[in-house]
Structure formats: C-alpha cells, structure tokens
Simulated assay, not measured.
Amino acid sequence: MTTTLAHLYLKSELPMTVTSTPDPHLLAFHQRLPGYAPTPLVRAPHLAAALGVREAWVKNEANRLGLPAYKILGASWAVYRELETRYGPFTPWTTLSDLAAQLTPHLPLTLVTATDGNHGRAVARTARWLGLAAHILVPDDMVAARIQAIEAEGARADVIPGTYDEAVAAAARLADERHLVISDTAWDGYTRVPGWVVEGYSTIFQEIDQQLADLGGQQPDVVAAQMGVGSLAMAVVTHYRAPGRQTRVVGVEPTHAACVLRSLQAGALTEVPGPHASIMAGLNCGNTSPLAWPSLQGGLSASVAISDAQAETAMRLLAMDGVVSGESGAAGAGGLLALVSSEGAGCARTRLGLTPDSTVLVISTEGATDPDAYARIVNGADLA
C-alpha cells in the first residue's frame, strides 16, 4: 500500500537544535524500581533490508519493569515528582516500601488518569507499588484484554463513552486534594506532570547510547517515533536534536488520528475529531499535547500517517527479526516503511539523508498487549 502525499509531511529545512538536560537523578530512580534492567537493543537485518539501509536497530520495550510497554518509565517518574512536590522533600530512601512509608500520613490518595491502555496500567502499577489507589478512565473502544490488565493491577477502570480525548477531559474533572491526575498529555494550566512524563522516557535513550557504545554501533541517522499526543516523540526530539547531533526524527501516527501531521500541515494545533478506530490503540488521539507541540513543530524532520495494514506489515517484519511488537509498538517501523514506498519516497530519502549506508532506530514501544490480535496478525501470517 502506497502512502499518499496527503499522509506525509516533510520539513524543507533542518530541524531545530534542542538544549535540555534530563534530571541527573532520573536513571538512579528507575534503577531502584523492582526488576529494573535495560531493555534489549536488537539488530534488525530484515527491517534494514526492507528499508534499504546498512543497519536497523530496534529498542524492544516488550518487557519494561514487568509490564509490556515503555510507559512505566514516564508514569513512575511523574508520580514520584508530583508526590515529592506536594508532600516532600522525601528523606533518603532505598526501596519503594521506604518511600511508601513517608506517604502514610497523607493517605488516602488516588492516582487518576485517562488511557488508551499502557499509560493507565503503568499508573496503576505505580499506585500499587506505593500503596495508593488508582482510578483509570478508558475510551469505549478499549479492548477487554487491556481493561482486564489495568484491573489486575488493583485499579478501578471506568469506561467513558466516546474517545480517548473525552476520557482525558473526564479525568481532569476528578482532580482534587485526594485525587492526583497523572496525565501524559497537557492542557491549559496543566503541564507540570506531562513534562515529568516526557522526562521519564529519557532513560530509554540513555540506555540506547550506552548499548550502541557497547555493541560498536553507530548513532542513528534517522529515528522513528510513534505519536499519540506526542510525548514520546517530544522525548526523542529532545535527545536526538541536542547540540552536536545530526539525527533526523520521523513521527508516525494512524491515518485517522493524525493530529500532529494535520497540525504540521496547518501550522497550528489542529484537532482530528473521533471516532479513532485504528488497531494502533495507543495512538488513537485527536489532539496533540500543547506541551509537546513546539518540540514537534520545530524538531521533526518528517511526519507520516499509516494505515492499519501498514502497521500489521511492520509487526510481521519485526517478528522476523525476533521482536514481538504490538500494533502501536510496530508503528515506528511501519512509518519508515511507508516513507520509502510513498509517492514522495525519493524526496523523503533526500530530506532525511537516508542512504544505503544509513543507520536507523525504531522503538518498539509495546509487546503483544492484545494477545489474540497479535496471534491473528502475526502467527497467522506466512513469515517465510
């Protein structure tokens, strides 16, 4: 399936350089969480061949701190920083039990968020670690497996009629002294917590830098980043558009929820009304986070919207490279594949500096979070 120019945005000039330094305590914080280990960085020769590049790397987030997605990095850090801001400073602690004990005088507390799946489960897991309650709001198209996973964390999960964006609005209305909203998207007057979510994701890129050094790999020429509200893509831009880096960043969205792409084309934040019915459930967002927007507008080299069929193709290709990647997880790879087969493929390669000697990086942001769908899409296909 060819990607049309209507589903593609290419920046005509070099993207901006970003100057930002992550909190020096961030990695040490994540290292104290139960089961911390760097997730694998995998060579992907089948993906490289399909893209026509020398080397492709996949950061495989199928098992991050015992959860099947990367979101726990942002959720845990944001919860910690918000709790510290409200009730700290905390005395030195070693385990989460030590930290939870310092919160006892402030109980009961409930963490609240809206989610398309992975972020909500991550907030619920963080709440369970700290002895807090969790109330997770989900859109009405959420598959049962993802709701059940949230409830298995001990959280209350309520289905909100409508889209993810309507669930976000409903979560915001619950905020009070006993209900802390931990959202990964921002709105007017609410940017502090989403900023910490984005910062939390930078652990991924600190790990990648070290892994590439250990494996003798080159820094990537092009990185693909999935975009729902844009928080992960903001983290990618912040890291890879830092001074001294020449990496290009490509943002990827579903065709029917391409709010960043439409905003880039319009030159201003633009809503894509629902319903958003893509199988890439974690990316079914109609509004770009206003916190992420300046970084995306200035730092993306390209933006592409892909179909469900293109995401499925990427899932099967990543499986050939040994990576179990769910529908949203494979979207980054799907976006790069769409770029090299688009009507503007030649122009895209030129603008991105993508050559047979290039190195690319994709982040497989989740594993098989809907196991039945994964089995149908991948295991039912001929991978030979």
Rank of each mutant, 00 (worst) to 15 (best):
H135F: 02
W293A: 13
A268H: 15
R64P: 00
L111T: 04
A122L: 11
L174M: 14
D370G: 04
L5G: 08
V229E: 02
V250M: 04
T247S: 06
G66F: 05
T3M: 13
E61W: 02
G228N: 08
L73V: 12
A258F: 09
M315E: 09
V42D: 10
T110E: 08
G154V: 10
L317R: 12
L336D: 07
V197P: 11
S342E: 04
L5R: 15
A235Q: 00
T110Y: 01
Y36M: 01
L174R: 14
Q297A: 15
A48I: 08
A145S: 15
G66S: 04
P92W: 12
V340P: 02
V237E: 02
A213N: 12
V252N: 07
A171K: 08
P194R: 00
A149S: 14
T113Y: 01
V193I: 15
A319W: 03
A62K: 14
A155H: 10
V236Y: 11
W187F: 13
T313M: 13
T359I: 03
R245F: 06
E84Q: 12
Y201I: 02
A242E: 04
D209R: 14
Q219C: 05
V222D: 01
A345N: 11
P356N: 11
Q246H: 15
Q265N: 05
V168K: 05
D188M: 00
T163F: 07
L232W: 03
P45H: 07
Q246F: 09
P15Y: 02
D23M: 06
A368H: 06
L361A: 07
T2Q: 12
T2G: 10
A381W: 00
G216T: 14
T113M: 00
T255H: 12
G154Q: 00
L103C: 03
V362Y: 08
V53S: 10
I147R: 15
T104F: 01
D141E: 09
G251M: 11
A292E: 07
G346I: 05
Q310S: 12
V272K: 06
V272A: 04
T85P: 00
T85F: 13
N284Y: 02
T350I: 00
L67K: 11
G282Y: 08
A266T: 01
G189F: 08
Y190D: 07
L67E: 01
L8H: 09
I150V: 13
V181F: 07
K71S: 09
Q246R: 15
I208G: 02
G299Y: 05
E312F: 13
L99Y: 12
A122Y: 04
L300F: 04
A169H: 09
G344L: 13
R248Y: 09
V252D: 12
E61L: 08
A56G: 06
G322Y: 10
P40H: 11
A134Q: 12
E61C: 14
V198I: 15
A233F: 07
P34N: 06
T365S: 15
A157D: 06
A155L: 03
L103E: 05
D214Q: 15
H46G: 00
A75N: 03
L65G: 01
A257I: 01
T91P: 02
A145Y: 11
S303N: 05
I204P: 08
S76K: 07
A338K: 06
V123N: 10
G88M: 03
A170P: 07
S263Q: 09
